[in-house]
Design a protein around this nucleic acid. Sequence first.
DNA 1: CTGAAAGCGCTTACAG
DNA 2: CTGAAAGCGCTTACAG
Lengths: 349, 349
Amino acid sequence: MRDKATSIDIAHRAGVSQSTVSRALRDSPLVNKETRDKVQAIAAELNYKVDKNASNLRRQQSATLALLLFEDPTSDDSLINPFFLSMLGSITKASATAGYDLLVSFQNLNDDWHAEYEDSNKADGIILLGYGDYLDYRDKLSKLEEQGTHFVRWGAHDAEHPGVSIGSDNIQGGFDITQHLIALGRKHFAFIGGASKACPEFLDRYIGVTKALQQAGLVHDESMQIEAITTEQSGYEATQSLLQSGKKVDAIVCASDLIAMGAMRALRDNDIRIPEQVAVTGYDNIPSSSFTNPALTTMQQNTKLAGEILVKNLLQLINGAQLSQVLLPVELVVRQSCGAQKSTRQLAN
Amino acid sequence: MRDKATSIDIAHRAGVSQSTVSRALRDSPLVNKETRDKVQAIAAELNYKVDKNASNLRRQQSATLALLLFEDPTSDDSLINPFFLSMLGSITKASATAGYDLLVSFQNLNDDWHAEYEDSNKADGIILLGYGDYLDYRDKLSKLEEQGTHFVRWGAHDAEHPGVSIGSDNIQGGFDITQHLIALGRKHFAFIGGASKACPEFLDRYIGVTKALQQAGLVHDESMQIEAITTEQSGYEATQSLLQSGKKVDAIVCASDLIAMGAMRALRDNDIRIPEQVAVTGYDNIPSSSFTNPALTTMQQNTKLAGEILVKNLLQLINGAQLSQVLLPVELVVRQSCGAQKSTRQLAN
DNA sequence: CTGAAAGCGCTTACAG
DNA sequence: CTGAAAGCGCTTACAG
């Protein structure tokens, strides 16, 4: 097997002390340019890399961020919500750019998750990501905060919630998509998705919906809000129960694309045409949403920006800054399911 | 700020030596049960966690695996191939189960990637994941091997390639899907995807296709294989050029789902009905593939098993075992695009 | 079963 | 600008 070179090996070869090697490799201005070049050349030749364990131990940091991705335990383990996967990509890139490694865990929340990372010095801070039931882990967030752990959370701002959160402007998103449907002449709205404190992001989207309805002078019946979690199946079931209620509906605003896909399947099973009879909209703009038939009108969240801001703010937090909530803009993606565009029809056959 | 407890703090409180604390926390059989319980109780109370940097430095390991995900630089940064995202989920879980943390990086291959991880003791081994151009990074794999770095690679087995690879049985996959189409009466096949050493996985799929054709006594013209990388756009362009060639075709086997989606768009733009006039199949069974119209017949790779085996084999490698290639079974997912099933038709309107 | 001691490979205050 | 030395917080061979 190979023996890894250490800074002492380099010191021997370069004829300087180990301290000087360390300084030269960290580009310390204290060290003579010639000495530094020589040391760095030898280091490169020996394929030397600073031992992170030793360096981190000495410096009492880790240059690592931890990402904890959690979801409703009800959803299929292997099928992570594509929206978070996209966030994952942007967070990875943003932390690499900032010179931090990223430790990733998709755990279900267990008793130790809050402690596992920063407490053991494996990570300098934690990014929390997921559409879980907020009420379930409130206490854990409080504990994190008490312990002085550095963390940022993706999601809705909630005054009762500890810690800093960064999220899309879900109220605006719900508002915009509803206003768009109203402009297209829809009048009888349903909202599918959990609208409670347990799901503050969905709740915000729902608040936006009702705001737009109110502004347009449309009455909104609270029974037209049906609970659902973010799965296709849950969206299907919620829509079935909506249809069985016999209430008049010509627009279904769904809290996520997965829910919307389930809603579309339910409408189809009931021989209801989309968008002619009922318009459907989603939220997230996951890749599949452009392949449904008709293609789904949805809200695009800026995942690239979100990842960058999560990382940037977490690093600021680690450096002792005080941060407040951040709301990111969302963007309406108009396709066929809302009835705004002519569908490029499949060839019938 | 908080002060993290150390093993010395616990030793003081427990009235034992720091060595005993360390032993007790690692469940050493050497230590008296009562002592151990007492130490562990105090540790829990103080929220103590072993400092990983110190522990890893001392033990000369990291209990961490690194996952390097790379893709064709041509594909959009933010849109990681959903197939790999699914692998990522299963690898994360498998390494957590094995007690390892997972460091994730989506880097483009730079000069240092091979060294960054194991050399700096940040990770005990590396998992490589991606459909890149193999020829581009052969040298890097060789260098990894020379240095004695522990790594496993997801992909095709290639005798010329250094290191251990784990992959799906792509030849079988190409064979099965083609045989299925032949059984449905298709006779004029095209294959879209790169069939060269640069893309050994695609090449294997193509080999499977030609094998099935041969076995069925169908002639196969090599001009019916069109190069494409794994993007919707590339599949679209390749199909356009196929159609312009005017050659007779009633089945297009695509090397990936993304390519197949592009192929379907091109067929539609040319007013060619799927599957009546031309059957189309994909590969990977990404989530979107069930939402295309018609839904895509494709090959499912067992990502859960794949992740588990990648992790298991890497750990064996780290422990000094000799490993050979592993081929995982694939499974045909029959939907409408091959013409086998009646489509549950959209309501026309 | 327990303790005192060495040492993992760095970084950095201190002295020159 | 450079070196000798301390020390980060553990684990473990050694001695009892």
